[in-house]
Design a protein around this nucleic acid. Structure first.
Length: 592
RNA sequence: GGUCGCGUAGCUCAGCUGGAUAGAGCAUCUGCCUUCUAAGCAGACGGUCGAAGGUUCGAAUCCUUCCGCGAUCACCA
């Protein structure tokens, strides 16, 4: 970073000296692998100010730099590109400066402003599936990246624990459950409740079919099926605070929460604070009433309240029903305000929600801005594409989902069978092995999902398993384990600063360059809310290391200085891999 | 129909705030384990960057139009 700033100054200085022209900026890019050099100045843009041949101009600037800048050892010009070779000592100085920084890349100080990251936010009537996994991994990772970039972060979720969908599960359990509990059946709580959600749907469809058979039009049958009416009645009772319904609701939700906690724990995600829809669904109405008085909203004849967003290129949107009850939007307005009240240092929120809600969040953010909240400028919808199956969309009701718990188990099993085939785990206890299979299996899954741009939809084919070779989590974990193996064998090498007169191997230099990019990569990932940038960075680093490992002997090096440096360099690469993967929520193994 | 997103190698994806001959992995084919872990390394094969125009010294990248896929446009959440 500082090198580029330095060079910018020097190039401007050179041009001033040589051509008496003040350049506003200088354009840099990393030098392509096929040319000699570390960093390249693009000469073309200068032609606007300097008349002449780009090759000549480049050559002259290059000569000036070699003469006047210590860290520039050589230059060459190809077409309009001035390739600059940076001295080895510069890279070794850099290496020495980060030697003791075990958290290299992370910003240590923390801003006073906090950002709240919401993710997961499931319904409590069915278990988590692959779509939730993408959501969870993204939200968790973005939160960790923001932290590493120096932000204070609160992780949260809103649990959709009320509404007609919950009543469906409850009703079906009452009707068909015969008192089944997680304890009595051995079923995980969320799966048990999900089972009755499916049972409801089955019964509902049967009733519709019967009604249609008896001559009722389909549309009416869908609205009048007795079991649906019953569920709606149950919702009314719930809202009225009926003891029996509320206690059933609490009981079944308890089962689900317990099940979710297990899945979250397995996935390795966590939350700092929780919000429940049952607590927040009434929020926001006062805000709307207040906004109505201030003219932000307007009332229609039937009493419903709307906001007119046509000037902003959007439509009119309802914010309060004619009977005065809240809609989804009302609730989200209220919840956002509630959060800032609960945590006054919040200045920004990230909502991890699928791209089907793009419009909703556009409207929500606009409304909050119009209501005049300063933090409304700092809201971000972390929108991601759906995870589809070859058969189409996942649908819980129809059982066409990739269940989160099953998938995790599946990945662990695959990791186990590959590990056993390779058979490198002599001396590991069963318990250690199990832990390792989990690390690798989850590493494969998490990396697979996080390495792709969140905006893109993912087509997941359960028939084809997630890869363990190439650009994958296990590949990177493997490299980490390799490094640890070297470090175990090199315990006589002491940690000490490296002599900067050392000649660097080409691969060593490439590694140092890549390590140097880590801090700015974290910042970039934070600005773009993109774990994929971290994943791609890590992959490049690891590829570079493996190439180095292959070409250069580390422990076999006879020159003690060099050996010492290579061991420490390997160690640093290991630290960066670990730090980067921590941002993705992926563990690294000592052996594999 | 309006709006938003996506379209890069057979498949999965990088690159997109404009720069050199568009990069990886998987798959297919060649080499490399008597030296630090072969879940690896080195190489071959594979591309009209959805299409056509435009801006520019220079376009996968920016603009326009069109095509394909997806989402969304409820007094559901």
């Amino acid at each position: 970073m500082s090198l580029q700033n330095d060079l910018t100054q020097k190039v401007i200085e050179a041009v001033k000296q040589l051509y008496e022209v003040d350049l506003p900026t200088v354009e840099f890019q990393p030098t392509r692998k096929d040319f000699e050099g570390d960093i390249t100045v693009v000469v073309f843009p200068m032609l606007r100010q300097i008349k002449g041949n780009p090759v000549q101009i480049g050559t002259k600037i290059g000569e000036y730099l070699v003469e006047h800048v210590e860290d520039v050892s050589k230059c060459n010009v190809v077409q309009g590109f001035l390739n600059i070779v940076i001295a080895d000592s510069y890279y070794l100085d850099f290496f020495n400066s980060i030697l003791d920084d075990t958290d290299f890349g992370y910003v240590k100080s923390q801003s006073d402003d906090a950002v709240m990251v919401e993710y997961s936010s499931p319904n409590t009537n069915k278990p988590l599936h692959l779509g939730h996994i993408r959501n969870n991994l993204l939200g968790y990772s973005v939160a960790e990246i923001l932290k590493a970039s120096g932000k204070k972060v609160y992780k949260t979720q809103i649990i959709n624990d009320r509404g007609i969908h919950i009543c469906k599960s409850m009703l079906a359990w009452q009707k068909f459950g015969k008192g089944e509990t997680p304890e009595s059946s051995g079923l995980k709580g969320d799966h048990l409740v999900g089972k009755y959600y499916v049972a409801f749907d089955k019964a509902y469809k049967e009733q519709i079919a019967e009604l249609v058979e008896a001559g009722t039009p389909k549309e009416r049958a869908e609205k009048e099926a007795p079991i649906l009416l019953e569920a709606q009645g149950m919702l009314r009772k719930w809202e009225a605070g009926d003891d029996e319904v509320v206690s059933l609701w609490k009981k079944m939700n308890g089962w689900v929460y317990y099940g979710f906690d297990t899945t979250y724990k397995n996935l390795g995600v966590d939350f700092d604070t929780l919000y429940y829809e049952s607590d927040t669904y009434l929020l926001g109405r006062d805000v709307v009433k207040d906004g109505l008085e201030r003219g932000v909203f307007f009332k229609k004849e039937d009493g419903s309240v709307w906001i007119d967003l046509t000037e902003d290129g959007l439509d009119e949107k309802i914010v309060l029903r004619s009977d005065g009850t809240a809609v989804y939007m009302t609730q989200d307005i209220g919840t956002a305000i509630q959060r800032v009240t609960d945590y006054p240092d919040i200045n920004g929120m990230v909502y991890t929600v699928g791209n089907e809600q793009d419009y909703h969040f556009k409207v929500l953010f606009l409304i909050l801005k119009k209501l005049g909240y300063s933090w409304a400028e700092q809201l971000y919808h972390l929108s991601y594409g759906m995870v589809d199956l070859p058969s189409g969309k996942m649908k819980s009701r129809e059982g066409t989902v990739v269940d989160a718990d099953d998938l995790i188990k599946n990945m662990e099993d695959t990791a186990e069978s590959i590990s056993q085939e390779l058979g490198k785990l002599d001396g590991y206890s069963e318990e250690e092995k199990k832990k390792l299979y989990r690390t690798i299996g989850l590493g494969a899954l998490k990396y697979y999902i996080l390495k792709v741009d969140p905006k893109k939809r993912i087509l997941f084919n359960p028939e084809e398993s997630v890869d363990f070779q190439g650009n994958t989590g296990p590949f990177i974990q493997y490299t980490y384990a390799r490094i640890q193996s070297i470090l175990r064998k090199a315990d006589n090498v002491r940690s000490s600063a490296v002599e900067t007169s050392l000649d660097l191997h080409e691969k060593e230099k490439e590694l140092l360059k890549q390590i140097q990019l880590f801090p700015e990569t974290i910042q970039l990932a934070a600005e773009n809310f993109s774990p994929a940038l971290i994943a791609n960075y890590t992959y490049d680093l690891v590829k570079e290391f493996n190439s180095f490992y292959q070409q250069v002997s580390i422990l076999g090096e006879t020159d003690e200085q060099k050996k010492n440096f290579r061991v420490q360099l390997s160690q640093k690469v290991g630290e960066v891999i670990q730090a980067a993967f921590r941002l993705l929520g992926i563990d690294v193994p000592e052996r594999m």
